[in-house]
Design a protein around this nucleic acid. Sequence first.
DNA 1: TTCTATTATCGTATATTTACGATATAAAAT
DNA 2: ATTTTATATCGTAAATATACGATAATAGAA
Lengths: 111, 111
Amino acid sequence: MAFHKKEEFGKKEQELAEVAKALSHPARIAILKVLAQKNECICGEIVDVLPLAQSTVSQHLKELKNAGLIEGTLDGPRSCYCINWKAFEKFTAGINSLFTNLKAKNEKACC
Amino acid sequence: MAFHKKEEFGKKEQELAEVAKALSHPARIAILKVLAQKNECICGEIVDVLPLAQSTVSQHLKELKNAGLIEGTLDGPRSCYCINWKAFEKFTAGINSLFTNLKAKNEKACC
DNA sequence: TTCTATTATCGTATATTTACGATATAAAAT
DNA sequence: ATTTTATATCGTAAATATACGATAATAGAA
């Protein structure tokens, strides 16, 4: 009944999984969409758009920040978030690199 | 104390989140890596490589299959899995499409 | 200073995930 | 027909995630 075996895997796998986990909730995808659409940094406008309580949105923002997908600075009573594009590029590149060497060969599937 | 609000978001967000969730555990990333490296379809070789019990690996395979990232066919006592490349392409394209219109403008960050 | 507005954190209930062993299933081998 | 082998499923315990309201914190306005 051991648990939490995640650290027994490779660093690369863990990092990819961590980012994927941050992306694994529609609310967080929606938050990223809002941040991308409004070019300026947003704060509580996100709360107005999502069907969630303010505290829940704040929690989701924290998870996105911990995963490195967004950056945020406190600016008095209001905070300012923006997307970290490099983290996204790193993620998609990481996913692709798992397969690049074989992607072409496998087009016709297997079983 | 309502729960499971995921269905209140858009279909696109839900689909992206679902795939991301399947990718959100290092064991499943590792499984995909193995499936990609061995060009032929694998089954219990995965169990030998991972630090997990057979039943746990089977569970992870099921989740990857449910998310559409792999395909599997039963072949007697042994089963045959392979990667569904199209699902990956759809996923990365979906992630990128959240931002494409603004990606260039934002390079210099915000706050 | 006191009030207001905005965001973060705490506490908590419920849901889901993760992992395992035990058991079922199903084809091949003996 | 029985055994072996490979995989899936069931049951279950512990961990984590999700959501909310209540509360703290912090800067600006009155």
